[in-house]
């Protein structure tokens, strides 16, 4: 039976539309708004519990110290690798940035301040080597990654402060450099929290 029929077949009064629409509204609210997300949650929690609960990172003692997907602020301690600029200081209950336009003078002054801070903390590394990604605000304010170059330029400072040799730090950075997804998508990157977690363990030895 084909349902493609000639016009005029549907003869019921227009009031019927109201009734069908109301019932469809309630039904699809339940189906798409309650059943679908709950079934998805059940499947996700059964099949992929770690991922479904936020990819949490634990230290050696088994304490949860963060999520590998959410950056943390290390800017207070120059002996750690620093992440990117975050106007919300990596406060994960929210997300966002200042949304400075490229022509906004506040953007330029913030960058100038970052450069001045860099020169103070890293007297051995000229600003020509300072990658732009390290002193720009990420979109989310929670970016867990820095570029490999952004990690390498911090080694001189960290080596001086911690006494760990530059060579050892370099091999640490290269060990924690993640490749592009499937070898082609996205960018090479270093997870700052994972890197600092190992750095901290080295320091405590």
């Amino acid at each position: 039976m084909s349902t493609m029929v000639h016009e005029g077949q549907e003869t019921r009064p227009r009031g019927a539309i109201l009734w069908i629409a109301l019932r469809a509204g309630v039904l699809f609210t339940v189906l798409c708004g309650i059943i679908y997300p709950l079934v998805s949650t059940g499947l996700a929690q059964t099949l992929f519990p770690d991922q479904a609960n936020g990819s949490l990172l634990k230290d050696k003692e088994g304490n949860v110290i963060g999520s590998e997907l959410i950056g943390q602020s290390f800017s207070g301690d120059p002996s750690y690798f620093h992440g990117r600029v975050s106007s919300i200081d990596y406060k994960g209950e929210a997300s966002g940035s200042n949304n400075y336009a490229p022509s906004n003078s506040a953007l330029i002054s913030r960058v100038q301040a970052s450069i001045a801070q860099w020169q103070q903390d890293n007297p051995d590394v000229p600003i020509q080597e300072l990658p732009i990604a390290l002193i720009t605000n990420s979109g989310s304010g929670l970016d867990p990654h820095i570029t490999p170059q952004s990690a390498l330029v911090q080694i001189a400072r960290i080596s001086k402060l911690t006494g760990i040799s530059a060579v050892e730090l370099e091999s640490l950075v290269s060990e924690f450099t993640e490749s592009r997804d499937l070898g082609v998508f996205g960018e090479k990157r270093v997870n700052v929290l994972k890197l600092n977690l190992v750095l901290k363990e080295k320091l405590e030895k």
């Binding site: 990117r84 940035s97 949304n99 400075y100 490229p102 953007l107 990658p131 732009i132 990604a133 720009t136 605000n137 990420s138 979109g139 989310s140 970016d143 990654h145 820095i146 570029t147 996205g186 960018e187 990157r189």
Partner: peptide
């Protein structure tokens, strides 16, 4: 690298 303000490293 280009304009990285407001973008994510990954």
């Amino acid at each position: 690298q280009g304009s990285m303000e407001g973008k994510e490293v990954r």
